[in-house]
Design a binder for these strands. Structure first.
Lengths: 190, 190, 190, 190
DNA sequence: GATGAATGAGGCTTCATTCAT
DNA sequence: GATGAATGAAGCCTCATTCAT
């Protein structure tokens, strides 16, 4: 019978933090996070220097996971549309399966406790995403604006889509497809 | 010679709250808000039962203002595009002139302290907006989804646009126009 | 029947702090100090930004009181010995009546929480003391060393004297006289 | 090739404690002491039942070392002045070479965590010192007071001297000589 | 009505100590 | 013996809210 692995405690804290932040916002108390992680309150601070560190680490962890979700299986050789659609689906699907993380992210993104450094690191996607977005932006009607605008549109339209899915999961497929068309139209539509 | 109006004190509190919430998030202390409004700490609670009330009132006040900005001068008889563009411009322009309020709103909208009732009231625009959005949604490729989806897209694309403008104000015009085209394409683009 | 004066609460805190620091050292908890002052814990922080401020204020308050004790009635025109003896007696008597303050001071003086600025301000006596010490130092065998050395000897010999008095109060007079002779001999003795 | 001796770990702890206490006061954490000693946090408690034990042990260790410094080479047959001067020089020289220990001692001596027993043991010198002090006290003007008063004066004047030396090491010799003269004058000066 | 001093619950963080490995 | 992860009590401090003036 396997006994609880040593060191696992640390790993439990970010998940608990995500859960609590999703529920209560970034003002979720460290005590409640620790409790929900099944560790003593003091233990939290063995692993995270202070609450800000924890918050920032959770933030970048989620950002990383998002990127990984989009990176895995990415058809680097596909057509522009195929690539864009792949990214879209990967992102929206990830969001659908990670409601808690999305909710936590919504809180973290507007929190002043996330450092600018971390925020910037979060924005810089991995190369293939950035490249696809750049191509897309260059081709579309937004070509005279920074490609980051296209990227922001991607994120915000996807966010809107995911929110709608969360509210009405039975139509997930429909929203996902419609969301992509909306995005595509936003960038390239006449 | 106009003397300071009685009751002015109350009116100063929401503005101060907006300022402080924009700066510090919803965790801005009531003391700091009172101070910034030039009233005593205790006086705040003569006007607002508790902090939550204040927060909710600020929320709906801003929402109201947004609506008024969009309503005033609305060309009810114009073409669909004319009307949509009017709304867009009115909204984005309002945002450009109300940075503080936008920032406060960003904090308030994710706060769990804003009641669902209030949130819903915020979403329900005034009739002309809703009507325009419905028409738009019905005509576009999103016609099989609730018109609230189109409305959410309007808001999120506008938000993205305003953020870009805030970061690079010299290109405000460009962003505003491009933003509208993006929105238009999102809803109607082929 | 006089009711408790408003604002008196603040004044009670330093006395309580002295009491507690004397008993428990500078690690006396703010909670215990507040309790002993008869105020809520939070109230302490209305008056003192943080514990360090309180500690430093207590430190300089006691230093001030010491100086006042030595200054009041000082025979500025007396002989050197008369003046030195006056200072000695004033200081030692003050210490005898202020056991708690002396004990608190013993803790505060070695605490790293007292700022260098404050420490320096504490060292700078009022002019008459400094002047007397300078004259004394110049005349004695320590004339080739900074006069601050003589002053430090004054303080440390007095401290030793006061400690002995505290341990055996019946001999207070004897110790006080002997202490002065010791100090006098230290500076001028053959 | 000498390998690190077993049991060395224990010996490293008091030195580390001295270092840390000198830096941070008696509130130096056991964790920081352990780290500075190169042992695990928990190991400290294998050697010292608790922090108080460690503190007390460090205290008496330093006191012992002081005594040894004064005892070694003590001219038991010398004149009273020769013996007193020997003790003085030995003590002041020891202090000059042991700044850290003096600083730690300054913290420990005022700490309520040092037991009365230990304190008393610290005061009782080894016989030759006590004897010399008694002779001195008996001969001087303080002859009607307990000889411990003379001993306290020795310590406090020496302390003052060492502090001055620490602040201005180039004048060490001058201070040391002047300090002894001051002490001598304090006890015997006319 | 207006004030701001007073409150105390609750939040973050430190740290001496224990104990399974 | 040695380790260091884990603990939770206790410390400092903030803040929404009350209420005597």
């Amino acid at each position: 019978m396997p006994r609880p692995k040593v060191g696992d405690k640390r790993a439990d804290i970010p998940s608990a933090a995500i859960q609590k932040i999703a529920e209560d916002g970034v003002s979720a108390s460290t005590a409640s996070i620790a409790k929900s992680a099944g560790v003593a309150e003091g233990s939290l601070f063995r692993y995270f220097e202070d609450k800000d560190r924890l918050l920032n680490e959770v933030y970048s962890e989620i950002k990383d996971e998002m990127r990984r979700a989009m990176a895995s299986g990415f058809p680097a050789e596909g057509s522009l549309k195929a690539r864009a659609e792949y990214l879209w689906n990967a992102y929206v699907n990830w969001g659908g399966q990670s409601a808690r993380k999305r909710q936590a992210m919504a809180q973290l993104s507007v929190s002043y406790r996330i450092t600018e450094t971390n925020r910037k690191a979060g924005r810089e996607g991995f190369a293939p995403i950035t490249k696809t977005m750049k191509e897309l932006a260059a081709k579309g009607k937004l070509s005279r604006l920074p490609s980051s605008f296209a990227q922001s549109l991607f994120l915000s339209i996807a966010e809107t889509t995911m929110t709608s899915i969360a509210e009405d999961p039975k139509r997930a497929e429909q929203y996902r497809a419609a969301g992509f068309e909306a995005f595509w139209g936003a960038i390239l539509g006449k």
